[in-house]
């Protein structure tokens, strides 16, 4: 345990609530169907891999249209929005993101018939440096 990457102090104003509202139009997302795969402890806060997938048949009648990724500890909550269609076959995407500090990552999925589902996960951004 010694000195690794620096910890950036938490920013006061994070707009996660406004961004959530803008995405859902005020509807309250239900926990479930969304799976967020992120490391529990980030190896590098500048590039944290994130996979989001949503349980959906992805048919013309029943599919996930959009998934927004938000971070509650960055200067801005917005991370990315993915747009799917039945042509996607599977509602799943993976990218790499910046996390300023330990925080929660939230994913909200919107279905074609206007339902919202959500999942979140805490990612620790650590100084690091010990070992057994």
């Amino acid at each position: 345990a010694t000195l690794g990457q620096s910890i950036t102090p938490a920013f006061a104003a994070n707009n996660i609530d406004e961004m959530t509202k803008a995405f859902t139009g005020g509807a309250k997302p239900v926990a479930g169907k969304v799976k967020l795969d992120l490391p529990e402890i980030a190896e590098n806060g500048n590039t944290v891999p994130i996979t989001v997938s949503v349980d959906s048949p992805m048919t013309d009648k029943d599919y996930v249209s959009d998934v927004i990724i938000l971070a509650d500890g960055n200067p801005n909550a917005g991370v990315a929005t993915f747009h799917f269609s039945p042509a996607s076959g599977v509602a799943e995407a993976n990218t790499r993101i910046r996390l300023a500090n330990t925080q929660n990552i939230v994913a909200i999925a919107k279905t074609n018939d206007g339902k919202f589902y959500t999942a979140s996960k805490e990612v620790k951004v650590t100084i690091g440096g010990c070992g057994g």
């Binding site: 971070a71 960055n74 747009h83 996607s88 993976n94 990218t95 790499r96």
Partner: peptide, 19 residues
């Protein structure tokens, strides 16, 4: 078949994976 909007929180040299 797929699109995405990125914010500044997406890392340098962006990586994207989808189906």
């Amino acid at each position: 078949v797929f699109s995405a909007d990125f914010e500044p929180a997406v890392s340098a040299n962006p990586y994207i994976q989808f189906k």
